[in-house]
Design a protein around this nucleic acid. Structure first.
Lengths: 169, 169
DNA sequence: CCACCTCGTTTGAATGTTCAAGTGTCCTAG
DNA sequence: CTAGGACACTTGAACATTCAAACGAGGTGG
C-alpha cells in the first residue's frame, strides 16, 4: 500500500510539519475550553450558530452548513439535535428541494451568539490575531488557503466566496 | 465575564482566523483518515508510537509523552491501554521516580511504526510539505511556534528542545 | 408505472475524548 | 513521625464523533 521510496523530510520541513501538527491539536482544544467554560458549547456548535447568524434569513441548508463548519453531515446532524434541544436552532424542510433540510437560528440562538461572540473574539485575539504581525497574518491566510486546497477544494472555495464583512467569528 | 469593548477583527484578520480554523478542523481529519485506513490507528496513537520510536531506549515517561503528543494525560492513558492491547507498547514503572510510569515501544510496535511511516510521510507531503514553497515552509514554522507560545509554552519548548534529525514524523 | 439509482439527511452502535474523582507516592513542616 | 499537600497517573462515566446502515424523495430507463 505504501512504496518505500518516499523522500524523507528535511529538518526544516520536519520542524514545520511537527509544529503544525502540534498547533492543530492544541489550538482547537484551547478554543473549545474557552467556549465550554464561558458558554457551555463547543467550537463546532459555535461555528454552526455563528454561520447561521451571518446568513440571510439566519438559514442554511444542512449540507452547506456542514461544509462551512468543516464537519461531516452526521456530525452536524447530531450537533443540531443538541442545539435544537436548547431552543437555539430549528429544523425546517427546504422549500426548494423537499429532500433537503434547512437549519434556522431562533431568536434565542441569535441572543446566544451575541452574548458569546465577544469572549470568543477576545480568545481569538489572545491566541492568534494579536500574536502575529500584519505581514504574518497575511502569510498565514495564504498558507492556510493553499493547504485547504490540497485537502479538498470545497472548504477553500466556500471561504473564498464569503462576503466577509468584518464581523464576528 | 466578557466585556463588550473587544475590538472587532479586520477583514484580513477575520479571513486568516477563519482559514486557520477550517484548517485545524480539516487537516487532522485527513491525516486521521489516511492512518485509520492504511494502519488502523489514529493520529494521536501514531504520534505516541513515533515519539517513542525516536526516543533513547524507545522509552518516555507518560507526562512527557503526553506533552509531546499534545494530549491530556488521561487521553494518553486510554490510548496506551489500546496500544498495549495490540502488543505495540508496554508500561513500566520508572526507575527514577516510583510514582512515574514509562511507556516502552516493543519490537512489534517498532515494526508497526516502520511499516506505517512511509505512507504517513507521503500524506504529509501531499497535504502540506510539497504544497508550500521553502519560504512558506519557514514562515509556517515561525508562525506555528509563535502561536504555540501563545497557547502555552510547554509545547513549543519541547519542540525547540528536540534534536530533529531528519527522520520520520 | 415500476424497478432502480442517486441524493440529502438521519439514526444507532462502536469508538474515542473529556471530565471529575480516586489511588498511591513523595515532600514538607510541625 | 505524621498530617497535609503536591505529583503522576488511572479509572469510569458522560459526552462527542465516526462509521455503516437506513430512510424517504426524486429522477431515469425499460
Amino acid at each position: 500500500m505504501a512504496a518505500d521510496d518516499v523522500p524523507w523530510l528535511t529538518p526544516e520541513q520536519l520542524r514545520a510539519w511537527l509544529a503544525l501538527n502540534a498547533l492543530t491539536e492544541v489550538l482547537p482544544s484551547a478554543v473549545d475550553a474557552q467556549l465550554k467554560r464561558d458558554a457551555g458549547i463547543n467550537r463546532f456548535e459555535y461555528q454552526v450558530m455563528a454561520g447561521l447568524s451571518e446568513s440571510p434569513g439566519r438559514t442554511i441548508r444542512m449540507s452547506v452548513l456542514a461544509t462551512f463548519a468543516s464537519g461531516s453531515l452526521s456530525r452536524l446532524s447530531h450537533a443540531l439535535t443538541r442545539l435544537e434541544s436548547h431552543g437555539w436552532v430549528v429544523r425546517r424542510p427546504s422549500a426548494d428541494d423537499p429532500r433537503a433540510v434547512e437549519a434556522v437560528l431562533t431568536d434565542a440562538g441569535w441572543a446566544k451568539v451575541q452574548e458569546t461572540a465577544p469572549g470568543h473574539v477576545r480568545e481569538a485575539r489572545r491566541l492568534v490575531v494579536d500574536v502575529l504581525s500584519p505581514a504574518q497574518t497575511a502569510q498565514l491566510e495564504r498558507i492556510c488557503m493553499k493547504l485547504l486546497d490540497a485537502v479538498g477544494p470545497d472548504q477553500a472555495d466556500l471561504l473564498r466566496s464569503m462576503p466577509l464583512r468584518a464581523a464576528d467569528d
